[in-house]
Simulated assay, not measured.
Amino acid sequence: MKNFMMARGAEKIVTTCVKVQPGEEVLIITEVEKFSIAESLAAAAYAKGGHVIISVIEPRMQDSAEPPHAIAAAMKQSDIFICVVGKSITHTHAVKDAITNGSRGVVLTQFSENMLVHGGIECDFEHAKLECKAVAAAMAGAKDLLLTSPGGTHLRYSAEGRRGNSLYCMVEKGEFSTVPTVEANVSPLEGTANGIIVADASVPYIGIGVLEKPIICEVKDGFIQSITGGKEAEILKRDLEAKHDPNVYNVAENGIGLNPKCKFMGFMLEDEGVYGSAHIGIGTSITLGGTVKASCHYDLIMKDASLVADGRNILKDGKLLLKI
């Protein structure tokens, strides 16, 4: 019964997000548990005249692990790639190389069948694009950015020389986007972030999800120095320590959620998109304009954020102040 209900969301992704054209090669990367979603997308892409390939991979051991070499090569040669996976392969050389080679792609990490029916997928992406591009432009190249939140976040960094990334679920050649999150982000210049991160909404990885108690991270010279809070903070702390990789503590991203249809539910691409939220990505930054490759990329999400870029108020208590 749910298969036909997923059809509308699948058609939106194929028609609006990646704009499949007749004769294009469409590579869908998935896992066994996500196969029903992949099938819905394949049917929609086939109906548009796409040459569809479904590749089923073994779930990665951890988020941000590279896909198999054969899959990476296929992504690079595809016209379109769609990743429907549980463990993220977004922040990988495979994605970076594919878009550099001209492919266009969307990422549906942690997607459930229901997410193809309700929630962020119902957003008017064309309308959201305007706000998203404006926020990304305001963040791009800013020498001094200050992120704060009612929960206690107070993080200052520079993005001088960095591009702004606008992910609004629609892509052209050489671009990728997440779905259904709508977000503008920038990768802080390495070594410049200092202050406090207080995640009080969600950390949608490693079984944490929507937070019961805030996670507090002290940041100095671009790296997290300490992680405190309750049991969820301990889970995050232990997971990062076990990776034996100092780059996992790198402040890699500041993203702003701009999808009015998203709600906090413990799934990454819904939670990151909640309108007026902010997230600090830690670890890998190479797909966002930074230079760091780590063994993971996690997002620490906070509610009702405020952002000032070079003295210009971008967001205040979760409300966008830019005139579009």
Rank of each mutant, 00 (worst) to 15 (best):
C169E: 07
G105V: 06
L146C: 12
E160Y: 11
V135N: 01
L147G: 04
M115D: 13
K96L: 15
C123T: 13
H118G: 02
S177M: 09
L167W: 11
A137L: 09
H91V: 00
T100C: 05
L108P: 04
K129S: 13
F111Y: 07
E172L: 11
E113G: 01
Q110F: 02
A138R: 12
L155N: 09
V135G: 04
A142Y: 11
V117C: 09
L167K: 08
I89L: 14
C132A: 06
E183A: 14
D124C: 00
R156Y: 06
E131H: 14
E172H: 14
T90N: 07
E183V: 12
E183K: 12
K133G: 01
A94R: 10
V117H: 01
E172W: 05
N185A: 13
V106W: 02
Q110Y: 00
G174K: 09
G164M: 08
G105C: 05
R104C: 10
T148R: 06
S149D: 06
N114P: 00
F111R: 00
V182Q: 01
S103M: 03
G174W: 05
H91D: 15
A138L: 09
K129A: 14
K87P: 05
V106E: 03
N185W: 12
N114H: 05
N165H: 05
G119I: 02
